[in-house]
Amino acid sequence: MKLSKLTTIIAASLLTLGLATPVMAASWDSTATVSFTDPSSVTTPLDPNDAATELTGSGTTNQSGSLTIDYASKLDFGQRTTSNTQEQTFNAKTDTVQIDGIAGSVKRSNFVQVTDKRGGGLGWQLAAKQSLPFKNGEEHQMTGTKILFNDRAVLGTESGQEPTMVGGNVTVLADDANVKLLNAPTGKGTGTTIHRFGGEVTGTEQEETTGVQLVVPAGAARAGTYNGTLTWTLEDTPDETV
């Protein structure tokens, strides 16, 4: 092989490697800062088993303001052997969290936490959709997958104020269409709400939960690392009474 040809190949492969990593435009706009917000308005995630104890976990969002998503589990279906002949269902991993007053790490069901501090119960809605399908880098896309949210439960810090769960077990297709999970009509949804998927997980042993499952059709996946995107939408929009 000629040397020049070899250099071209090396250069091209280096360039490909570089392009495969995400790029962010780094233009810094230094004008117009308005006001300083109180950072203490971030609501700490709470234990999805009792909503009374604070916890630390990887799903913390650090959102602050008067209506926020404080926590959303980073769903992980683990390393799996997929099948070409059979549809398969994979459980999500439980969350590994640290809880005040308990030594070390413990396992908990996957959950989402919403806080409404606007006062007066103005109402809100939580929806989820799979906005990007599971992809193996840029190469391969899984078709026809479903994410199931099962045995859903709602816990609130203000008793009697909990929002209503919409539907029973919920299926989210990879079709970029919102599925409504929680509806807090006027007068409800104040304080902190935990939306738990699956039963109460305790202790340190349980690695998986049937609370969130991924259904992969036969032959849909190849070997490799797949990542999809769930978009959680917190809405302040007209409710069912309009």
Partner: peptide, 8 residues
């Protein structure tokens, strides 16, 4: 393996 990224 198979994982999900959250977007808000």
């Amino acid at each position: 393996g198979i994982s999900v990224t959250n977007n808000y």
